[in-house]
Simulated scan of single mutants.
Amino acid sequence: MTQLVLDPCCGGRMMWFNRDDQRALFGDIRSEKHTLCDGRAFNITPDLNMDFRAMPFSDESFRLVCFDPPHLRHAGRESWLRAKYGILSDDWQDDLRRGFAECFRVLKPEGVLIFKWNEIQIPTRQILELTPHKPLFGHPSGKRADTHWITFMKGQS
């Protein structure tokens, strides 16, 4: 089956209803196994180890990309937050700028990008400044409305 959806930062696939959905290609720079503080296993097992800043796909390969990059600048080296969500590098602005560019590059014309961001450490407005693409709509969620789901649509080529 040809995958129509790309998740280039899949982590533990926490947002997926079906973590083995065959329509999606799950990528991540990490392949790791963790035991969380409550004893549960938390595994990052991508279909493909890849870097969202330089994806190994042809232009216009996917109809949908869900981009949920690390959102933390600071987290303890052994913390469950770091294990679950990863951590941004010191060059996080350039990393995310390149990530957005890559997501739009691999999207087909009129393809959809779903972007998820938690602004607990970096405000969403700062992140949206890293791409020239303008979102269609979005919604804050969570107990403190810190997580934002934002939808973009690529233009026609």
Rank of each mutant, 00 (worst) to 15 (best):
G39D: 08
A41V: 07
D20M: 06
G86P: 08
D28G: 06
P56I: 10
D68P: 00
N49I: 13
N43G: 05
R105C: 03
D7C: 13
I29Y: 13
D91Y: 07
R77N: 10
A24S: 08
N49H: 03
P109M: 03
N49F: 01
L64H: 12
C103W: 06
C103H: 04
L64E: 10
C9I: 07
N49T: 15
A41Y: 01
D47K: 06
P56N: 11
D7I: 14
D68Q: 09
Y85H: 13
V5S: 02
R13Y: 03
H74I: 14
L6R: 08
R73I: 09
A75E: 09
N49D: 02
L81K: 11
G12Y: 12
M50T: 13
Q93E: 15
L81A: 12
L36Q: 02
P46H: 08
L25Q: 08
S79K: 09
E78D: 14
G39T: 08
R13G: 05
V65C: 03
D91V: 05
L88M: 10
Q93V: 02
I29A: 13
G111R: 03
A24R: 11
D91G: 06
P109R: 04
N118G: 01
S89P: 11
H34C: 04
S79Y: 01
Q22F: 04
Y85V: 04
F67W: 00
A54D: 13
R19P: 13
Q3D: 00
D90E: 12
P46N: 08
I29D: 04
Q22T: 14
F57I: 02
F67M: 05
F62H: 05
R73E: 09
H34N: 15
R13L: 07
E102T: 05
P69N: 02
E32Y: 01
D7S: 13
P70C: 08
S58Y: 07
S79C: 05
S79F: 07
I44R: 05
G99M: 03
L107A: 02
F115H: 13
F17G: 07
I87L: 15
T2S: 14
G27C: 13
P70W: 09
C9N: 12
T35H: 09
S31I: 10
G86R: 13
E110T: 07
P70K: 06
D51R: 04
W80T: 14
L88Y: 03
E78Q: 15
W80L: 12
F52R: 02
G111E: 03
A41P: 03
